[in-house]
Nucleic acid binder design. Structure first.
Lengths: 204, 204
DNA sequence: CCTACCGATCGGTAGG
DNA sequence: CCTACCGATCGGTAGG
């Protein structure tokens, strides 16, 4: 079922090159919902606030989404299914663990840097709200793929064993940092890759 | 006004050596509130849930706290005022930036590892809810002190300039990691210090 | 610390 | 996509 992830990735690539006023109402809803979820949390962001920012009445939201949580579920596809798909490819590829890990995190940081939606905190809210079963499965797939690459790197002597337990959480933080900073550039991505690799590599 | 931070630190040290059944109702409320805030977010945790876990009726909460947000404000003292106080001491001390930074983060990780309350996500919720003016001031003080140490280390050639922009967010993540993991030990603290220093130091 | 209760706001529906 | 509206739940108060 990688079709879901690939379709979602293509849709985001299309949104990035499209002026925001030409976005569909549905995507405008997702954008404002993501921003309010990030700022006030899922429960703290009301459907009336989302509708106001989009410029429609609150009940009109439910012509595009069956529920508020379905908005979060769709954002979780961009936040977890797409990264999980890329992480699984990196985990199954040939080459050194270091090269595959470096390649994945470079893609990951660039994904978040150019992401139109504000996905910060989506992961945590997804993991914690037990309703979103599919999104939780994607989180587990991502963790499994990253964990595999890290173990491969420890076995080959490239990665520090004691460091690997911190890597998933720090990777996530650096991803959100790309979203957080308006002035994040391609250089910022390179710096974040160097930062994480320096912490992960076995000291020589 | 470091008396607030020092009193709060002493209170936490006392709680750590006291069996939980001997805690005051007030501290039991703070414990369960912190856990529910961390799991469901501030808005997602209801006062009825908090009261149920403490074993009292919901309106009784307001005999101990004037409002739900005042519970968050008190947790923010443990999450921000106490660390800000220690960071400011480290920033003003003599010695190399590396030594002072390493000393601070070792204290920080140990603070969160042995913290009875679950302070994850308190910072974000504090920063975002504009009402908690005092807590926001503590966040700013912490950021200023850490930023000063980092700039000192860059000037002296000990720290990598491009790395320092990621350090505050990653430091916070590693602190929460100490709370998150039930099996976090003194060794985990040492590993986290090594992890962050490896990423922060100028490569030789 | 309890019972009883209130106004406000919430997510979502009906019907057009 | 709008207006009108509903049941549920929210944080907090009154009074004992």
């Amino acid at each position: 079922m990688s079709g879901l992830a690939e379709d979602a990735e293509q849709h985001v690539l299309a949104l990035r090159t499209m002026p925001r006023r030409r976005w569909s109402t549905r995507d405008k809803i997702l954008l404002e919902a993501s921003r309010l979820f990030s700022t006030h949390g899922f429960r703290g962001a009301s459907t009336r606030q989302i509708a106001e920012r989009v410029g429609i009445q609150q009940p009109s939201l439910f012509k595009h989404f069956p529920s508020k949580s379905s908005m979060l579920a769709e954002l979780a596809v961009y936040d977890m299914d797409v990264p999980a798909h890329h992480a699984e490819i990196a985990a199954a590829a040939t080459g050194s663990a270091l090269d595959r890990f470096a390649g994945y995190i470079a893609w990951d940081f660039e994904w978040y840097r150019t992401m139109p939606f504000d996905l910060r905190c989506v992961t945590e809210q997804v993991v914690r709200s037990e309703r979103l079963v599919e999104a939780r499965a994607a989180v587990n797939r991502w963790n499994a793929a990253i964990g595999l690459i890290l173990r491969q790197g420890v076995t080959s002597g490239e990665f520090s064993e004691s460091a690997t337990s911190f890597v998933p959480a720090v990777l996530e933080t650096l991803s959100w940092h790309m979203v957080n900073k308006k002035d994040a550039s391609a250089q910022t991505v390179d710096d974040a890759v160097s930062f994480l690799l320096a912490a992960t590599l076995e000291p020589r």
